[in-house]
Each structure stands twice: as structure tokens, then as C-alpha cells.
């Protein structure tokens, strides 16, 4: 294919990605070092209240925003360097907490708390999703053929469903005296409030994510199991390998590229954890990095959005995902292309 034809085919898609992915990245980078604020001016304001005989007048200095001719606030954008980052990370305070061993205090700073949750969330769900997906794939593969279609159908439901609503539907089982809370109370014989404490909410969020992501792992591994070479399994049986040994020495190595693939996708997706926070309304207990950015972007009561802070937290989020993915990506890279070059 000539370059010109190739450009015609790929052009529109590339243009969209440049315009709507690369350009915003650059603008986020720029915004994070600049602060846009309404221009304020101090004015002497005299306020008078009716009093007996004479009015009582107070003169005070007030800071009010400057308005232009049309009544809009005048804003200025100033270059502030790393100030916004500093405000977000609070390095002095964080360092002081770390040296004092006060981890709880450190996590009270929004960013560090969000980072803690996002990372633990990602790394706890990863092995659970891979394990459950693998277990399901092996188990479904041993079912009679006529059942498999229906099982796959049911399994796909949690994966396909709107994430916010999936999280909500699990929340509704537990909310107040919902049936599962009632069942737990009856079983443990004590009063339980699932949404009063951070760790129970966090547990439900982990559960939701495994529930939502395991079907994807399952479908991929199940497809991988169909392509397994029966000759190697047969020779393993002749050599006297037990089922566990077959699984360990033949099935898992065969699925290894798929396991790496699913892990990569899961790392990307779990790091983006966001919908769970909305669904379980956990923002007063735990937040994630994406939620941090989201919250800055939602207008506050005065209608202002903290774009600079959102940009800074977005940059930090992005640096995090780069760190997270660089090791597995390099490793896959070497595996596939190391032999050639």
C-alpha cells in the first residue's frame, strides 16, 4: 500500500485522536502550571444600619471581583509554576506525617488518600479477577456442551451492564435493612450498617469490581482453552501427570500471553476506578484519583470550576498510570520483539 493511500485510510481516525486526545493532553499540561482567577479589588465599603437618633455606619475593606462592561467577571491567568501541584501534594505536611509515622494523617490529605485507594484497589482486584476468570474458564470447559451457552450468557451480564448501575444494584441489596444486610445481621446476630464505615464500603467496591471484570477474563481464557493442543495434554497424561500438574505445566503456560493481556487491560481499567465511587456514593469515605479530578471539574456553589487543580491532579494521575504500565509493557515488548533485534 502506498503511503498516500495509507494516509487517506488512516487520516480521519488519526485526526480525531490528535484533536481530541493529544491536544487536550497538551492543554492539561499547560493549565496545570497556570492559575486562572477572577481579578479582585479591595474597596472601602460603607454600610449603614438604621439606629436611634443617628445611623450606625461601618466602613470596612471588602474584596470584590472586578466586573467588565457586560457584568462578567474579569479573569487573569498567571504562570504559577509548581504551586498548584504543591497545593495538591502538600509535600511539607506529607513529609512531616511520614517522618512522624502518622499514616492516617497522611491519608487525610485528599491526594494521598486517593492514591492509596486507587493502588490498593488495582492490586487487590488484579489477582482475584485473573484467578476467578481462570477458575471459571476451566470449570465451564468441563460442563456438558448444552449448558455452556446459557452459562456464558449469565456470565456476560455483570460485564455488559452500565457500571454505575451495576454498583447501584449491589448497593441496593445492602442499603438500610436490605435483604443481604438483614441476612448478615441474622447470621452474625448483631447490628450492621454497611455504609457507615470506610472499610465495608471499600470491600463492596472490591467485590463489585471483581464481579464486573471477571467475565471478561473468563471469556478470553475460555477462548484460549479451546485452542489448546490435545496432543500435549495426552502425552502429559501418558507420562502420569495429575490434573493439577496438567493445569500448571500445560494449560497455564499455554494461556500465559492471554493472562498478560488481561492483566494489562485490567491494570488500565482498575486504575481508572470511578463509577464505583458514584454508585456507592463513597466520596465522604474514600475517593480515587479520577474522582479527585472529577470533583475539581464539577462547578462549586459559585459556579467556578478549579481547572488548574483538576489539570494538576490529571497530570499526576497520568504519571501514575505510566509508572504502573511501564514494567509490564517493557516485559511484553522484550518477549515479543527481543528475539528479533
Amino acid at each position: 500500500m502506498k503511503f498516500k493511500t495509507f494516509a487517506w485510510f488512516v487520516g480521519p481516525s488519526l485526526l480525531m485522536m490528535l484533536l481530541f486526545i493529544l491536544a487536550p493532553l497538551i492543554s492539561v499540561f499547560w493549565q496545570s502550571f497556570n492559575l486562572t482567577q477572577p481579578v479582585m479589588q479591595t474597596q472601602m465599603v460603607e454600610t449603614c444600619t438604621p439606629g436611634f437618633i443617628t445611623q450606625i455606619c461601618v466602613t470596612e475593606e471588602k474584596t470584590i471581583p472586578v466586573l467588565d462592561d457586560e457584568g462578567n467577571m474579569v479573569t487573569t491567568t498567571t504562570f504559577v509554576g509548581f504551586d498548584v501541584y504543591r497545593e495538591l501534594l502538600q509535600p511539607e505536611k506529607a513529609w512531616q506525617k511520614i517522618t512522624a509515622g502518622d499514616w492516617r494523617g497522611l491519608l487525610l490529605i485528599d491526594f494521598w488518600g486517593a492514591l492509596r485507594f486507587t493502588l490498593t484497589f488495582t492490586f487487590i482486584t488484579l489477582p482475584l479477577v485473573i484467578g476467578l476468570g481462570l477458575g471459571l474458564a476451566v470449570a465451564v470447559n468441563s460442563l456438558v456442551k448444552s449448558l455452556r451457552g446459557s452459562v456464558i450468557f449469565i456470565t456476560l451480564l455483570p460485564f455488559i451492564i452500565t457500571p454505575v448501575i451495576g454498583a447501584l444494584s449491589i448497593k441496593w441489596l445492602f442499603i438500610g435493612d436490605g435483604i443481604l444486610t438483614a441476612a448478615l445481621e441474622w447470621w452474625l446476630d448483631k447490628d450492621i450498617a454497611m455504609f457507615a464505615e470506610a472499610w465495608t464500603i471499600e470491600f463492596l467496591m472490591l467485590f463489585y469490581r471483581v464481579w464486573h471484570a471477571a467475565p471478561f477474563a473468563f471469556v478470553v481464557f475460555y477462548a484460549g482453552l479451546q485452542t489448546i493442543n490435545s496432543d500435549s495434554l495426552e502425552s502429559a497424561v501418558i507420562d502420569g501427570a495429575s490434573r493439577l500438574q496438567q493445569l500448571w505445566y500445560i494449560v497455564i503456560p499455554h494461556l500465559m500471553p492471554l493472562i498478560v493481556f488481561v492483566s494489562l487491560i485490567h491494570l488500565m481499567d482498575a486504575y481508572r476506578v470511578f463509577e464505583e465511587i458514584v454508585g456507592f456514593s463513597s466520596q465522604s469515605h474514600v475517593i480515587s484519583l479520577q474522582w479527585l479530578t472529577y470533583e475539581f471539574l464539577v462547578p462549586d456553589q459559585a459556579g467556578n470550576r478549579s481547572v488548574s487543580r483538576a489539570s494538576a491532579s490529571a497530570m499526576l494521575t497520568m504519571i501514575g498510570i505510566i509508572f504502573l504500565l511501564i514494567y509490564p509493557l517493557r516485559k511484553t515488548w522484550k518477549q515479543y520483539y527481543g528475539g528479533n533485534s
Binding site: F3, F20, R272, F274, L289, Y294, S311, A314
Partner: peptide, 28 residues
């Protein structure tokens, strides 16, 4: 071509980006 391969790699990197990062760029 090499170019096609690199485009795919870049696309993979783009896939990893959290969407809030992009929205922070569009917003203003």
C-alpha cells in the same frame, strides 16, 4: 510498515489514559 506498527502502539498508550485527564483538557 513501521509507521502502522507505531500508530498501533500509540493507540494502546492512548487507551490507558484515564478519561478525566482528557475532560480536564476539554473543559475550559
Amino acid at each position: 510498515t513501521k509507521l502502522a506498527f507505531w500508530l498501533l502502539v500509540v493507540a494502546l498508550v492512548f487507551r490507558a489514559l484515564p478519561h478525566s485527564v482528557l475532560v480536564a483538557g476539554y473543559m475550559p
